[in-house]
Design a protein around this nucleic acid. Sequence first.
DNA 1: ATGAAAGCGCTAACAA
DNA 2: TTGTTAGCGCTTTCAT
Lengths: 339, 339
Amino acid sequence: MARRTHVTIRDVASNAGVSHQTVSRVINESERVSPETRARVLSAIDELGYRPNEIARIMARGRTHTLACLSPNLTDYTFASIIEGAEIEARQHGYFLLSASAPDEDTFALLVEQLIERRRTDGLMVINPYTDQRFRHVPKDVRMVYLGAQPRDEQVDSVSLDDEGAGHCATQHLLHLGHRRIVSITGPVCEDCSQDRQNGYLQALRQAGITPDPNLVVEGDWSATSGYTAVRSLLEHRVAFSAIFAQNDRMAVGAIRALREANLCVPQDVSIIGFDDMPLASYFDPPLTTMRQDTFRLGRQAAGLLLNAVENPTLETQRLLLPAELVMRNSTTQYVERR
Amino acid sequence: MARRTHVTIRDVASNAGVSHQTVSRVINESERVSPETRARVLSAIDELGYRPNEIARIMARGRTHTLACLSPNLTDYTFASIIEGAEIEARQHGYFLLSASAPDEDTFALLVEQLIERRRTDGLMVINPYTDQRFRHVPKDVRMVYLGAQPRDEQVDSVSLDDEGAGHCATQHLLHLGHRRIVSITGPVCEDCSQDRQNGYLQALRQAGITPDPNLVVEGDWSATSGYTAVRSLLEHRVAFSAIFAQNDRMAVGAIRALREANLCVPQDVSIIGFDDMPLASYFDPPLTTMRQDTFRLGRQAAGLLLNAVENPTLETQRLLLPAELVMRNSTTQYVERR
DNA sequence: ATGAAAGCGCTAACAA
DNA sequence: TTGTTAGCGCTTTCAT
């Protein structure tokens, strides 16, 4: 015998012999209700199996208690763990996180329209805002946070990795091992983080008194295949190098495959350092030396920042920079002069 | 000069000199409005920058156009790609997908209460419903779909992999290569899919006239470490085997490491087949032979089923079974008798 | 083709 | 402490 419509606050009220407003006070844990009334209301709620309609509360309060997170996709480990961190943080504050994949600019614009302009969510998280021109589609008056890139002109919060510092650190690690001709396999140059990591690389070289050789830098697209191709072309052009800094682990793994196919050993012939410390990075052959970034924490921090901004609209925006950590495993080693 | 409150349907109405109801008809693309009025309303909408308040529409219609997806976590590639598939399918039908991580039963129960009982969403997707007792916390009257396991008694839709068939196929592959003593490293036995895959394994052995040896099956927990430990203990107990069926790729990779540490070569000394075809499965050493499952499609199908059920409440429930596909790479080879 | 009235289920402001 | 009265911004039903 399914009820056509749900139990409402008024059903509870008449059952308990009070006004619906008193019921509202009880479910909102207001102080201003006597213990006896509260008890009566509570038992009526129990008896009728009443559950507040959250949509009605949102409507009356004008706040959705929901955050949106727009990411290029939901499957890349980096993104997925950012999202998981954000989701957990949001929920701890009584918010939900609605995450959606926006592979291109048009999808992004559509989602902003539906989620933000139509007021389904209170705030917006944008992962990699400077991939294409997506950042342009966000209206000025929405509270939001950028993840993975620092704002250019916009007045928004942001949380990102210290990519320049990490690129510097990775390169320095290789330099300390005695390497001088270090290849850099970058992400797409259009993405801020690729450029930042590359700048760290260049700076470290210069500090070591090395003039960067443009022949040693190759642009990849984060995929293992692109790392593979990069090394292949280097090898074909007989470019000399003894170490590689790959801007992510997937490209590092692809690079290793290309080296192996050319009968080059890692790390004896070529040292290679990756970036991310993806799951199973230590299970590749050889176990990958890499720059670990704590993406889960990045997601938490970003959600925290946004939550704060949503609840205190007058707050100044801020930029958070998280450090990366060098994880030494077996894909890098001391440089040895070859004949 | 931020407006205190947003532009509403009534602002548009008075600007266009019509009733708010006519505006409603226009934004809902009703036929019953004259072209001239429509044009006037449209230009008023444009002029005032009106955007419908989605929460108000949800409230009035009694439908949220949102689905919830509860998953043990958001980062495992299997889950993440199911979710991505579901999200994309949902959005194509004008729905949003709110995905949340429910690592344990309590969190699950809380989320069901908040998302379903308080009517924030129209339907529920549950990944791995028989992990712990979570399935018990879902009220009878909610439309939902199980992912990754077939319903026991509940009347719900489900989409899952043909785990038994896949387990059978994986084992048969090893049998065809001449292996007779085949180890099975399972997932947690409490999960349905582990048991189904194990049943497929047992059945294949029996069909080949082999009496299954209980010493050859070890329970893992899906982690690489557990695969590693499993093989270590087998080796310590001097259990003889020439092949391994690992119920996921991560455990397979862990197993490979343990074998290598014992100076055993894969596949020359021991063949090994994994399960999932996770990203980079072909970049391990050796490239992994595995049973590929199309989790993205699984997510899409599940969302499609749920959407259908939500919009046609009288529909019969159904169970979908997706096939897995054998991907042959280099971690398995012909059995050769050793001294 | 258009409008008036009622209501979705709740919270907020004000009275008593 | 409790109740009354208005909304929140829409859709739906019923007139006209």
